[in-house]
C-alpha cells in the first residue's frame, strides 16, 4: 500500500465514516454527472417534479401522453434531475499549523507536525466520504507548500489527494481569511467548501471570508483543528512565547495566565460558532487528542443527516 495513502486514510477511521456524507442544504445543480444529489435542473430521473404546458421546442419525449389522451392538450412531465456533489477541501497550511506541542523538541521545520497531520487526515477523510458517494472533490492548500488537486472523482482522486497532502508543508504567515479570499476564484463550481484550519485570525475577517464564500454559492463547513496543548495550555514558569507567524514574542509567567487563556479559548470557540450560525455554515472544532473517525462521523451525521 502507498505509504501516503496509509498515512492519511486510516482504515479504522474510514470504517467509522461509513454511511455518512455531505449534503447540500438546497437543490444543487453544480454537478456535471448524474449522481445522488437532487438537482434544480429537470432531467430523466424517476422523481416527478411538475407538469407544464408544452411550448414549441420542448423535447417531445417529455410529453405526458396520458394527459394528452385525456385532455387533448400537450403537457410536459418534468422530472427532477440528480447530479453529483462538488466538495472543495481547503486545508490551512500556514505556519501556525506547524505545531507539534511543546513537549516534542525533535520537531523539525518542514516535517508535518502533529497538528497539521491531524488536519490533513481530517481533510482526507472528508474527501474520502465525498468520493465514496461518487461525488467530486478538489483540494486547495492555503499557504505553505504543496500542490492543489483539481476537481475530480473516483479512486484516482483519492490517490491524488493522498499524494498532495503528503507533499504539503505548513509555512507562511498570511491570515487564513486572506488565503480563503485568494483561493475562492479558483473554485470552479458551486459546492461545499470544507475549510480545515485553526482559525487563528480576527473574527471579523473570518466572518467576512465565510460570507464571501457563501455569496459565491457554496455551502461552508468550518473544521477547527487545534493541538491538545493549545487547548490545555500546560506550560508553567517564566516562558517566552514566540509566534509561528512572526507575531511579537511574549514573556510571561505561564501558570499565571492558564485559566485566563482557557477562558479566552472558550470565548473564541463560541465566537466561531456564532459566526458560523449567522453565516449559514457548519462549525466543527476538533482536538488532536480526539478520535478523528468518531468525532468526524458524529459531526457529519449531525450536520447532514
Amino acid at each position: 500500500m502507498d505509504p501516503a495513502w496509509k498515512r492519511y486514510f486510516d482504515p479504522p477511521t474510514l470504517a467509522e465514516l461509513a454511511g455518512v456524507g455531505l449534503r447540500r442544504s438546497q437543490l444543487y445543480d453544480g454537478g456535471t454527472l448524474a449522481g445522488l444529489h437532487r438537482s434544480s435542473r429537470h432531467g430523466h430521473s424517476v422523481e416527478f417534479a411538475e407538469h407544464r404546458p408544452y411550448t414549441p421546442g420542448d423535447d417531445l419525449r417529455s410529453v405526458d401522453w396520458k394527459i394528452y389522451g385525456r385532455t387533448d392538450r400537450y403537457f410536459l412531465r418534468n422530472r427532477e434531475d440528480e447530479t453529483t456533489l462538488v466538495c472543495h477541501l481547503l486545508l490551512d497550511a500556514t505556519a501556525s499549523m506547524d505545531f507539534d506541542g511543546v513537549a516534542s523538541p525533535d520537531t523539525r521545520p518542514g516535517s508535518s507536525a502533529e497538528k497539521f497531520l491531524y488536519a490533513a487526515r481530517v481533510t482526507a477523510s472528508i474527501g474520502f466520504v465525498t468520493l465514496e458517494t461518487q461525488d467530486q472533490c478538489s483540494l486547495t492548500i492555503l499557504g505553505g507548500h504543496g500542490p492543489d488537486v483539481p476537481l475530480g472523482g473516483g479512486q484516482p482522486q483519492l490517490q491524488a489527494l493522498a499524494q498532495a497532502l503528503a507533499q504539503s508543508q505548513p509555512a507562511g504567515d498570511q491570515a487564513i481569511s486572506e488565503r480563503v479570499a485568494d483561493a475562492l476564484p479558483r473554485l470552479q463550481r458551486e459546492g461545499i467548501v470544507v475549510l480545515v484550519s485553526d482559525f487563528w485570525d480576527e473574527a471579523e475577517r473570518l466572518d467576512s471570508a465565510v460570507r464571501l464564500v457563501r455569496a459565491a454559492g457554496h455551502d461552508v463547513l468550518l473544521v477547527r483543528v487545534l493541538h491538545e496543548e493549545e487547548r490545555s495550555f500546560p506550560l508553567g514558569g517564566m516562558t517566552r512565547f514566540e509566534g509561528l507567524e512572526g507575531e511579537p514574542a511574549v514573556e510571561l509567567q505561564a501558570d499565571a495566565y492558564r485559566e485566563l487563556y482557557r477562558q479566552a479559548l472558550v470565548e473564541s470557540e463560541q465566537q466561531l460558532e456564532r459566526l458560523s450560525r449567522h453565516s449559514g455554515a457548519h462549525y466543527l472544532s476538533m482536538s488532536t487528542a480526539e478520535p478523528l473517525g468518531k468525532t468526524l462521523a458524529a459531526a457529519l451525521h449531525r450536520f447532514y443527516g
Binding site: Q253, L260, A264
Partner: peptide, 28 residues
C-alpha cells in the same frame, strides 16, 4: 537572571495569548 531562566516555546495561538496578556500583564 530569573528573566533569563525562562523556557522559550513556539506557540501558534499567539493571537489568543496576546489578548490575554493585554488584560493581565500590566498589573503583574
Amino acid at each position: 537572571l530569573l528573566r533569563r531562566r525562562r523556557q522559550t516555546v513556539s506557540w501558534p495561538a499567539m493571537m489568543l495569548l496576546q489578548a490575554v496578556v493585554r488584560r493581565r500583564t500590566r498589573r503583574v
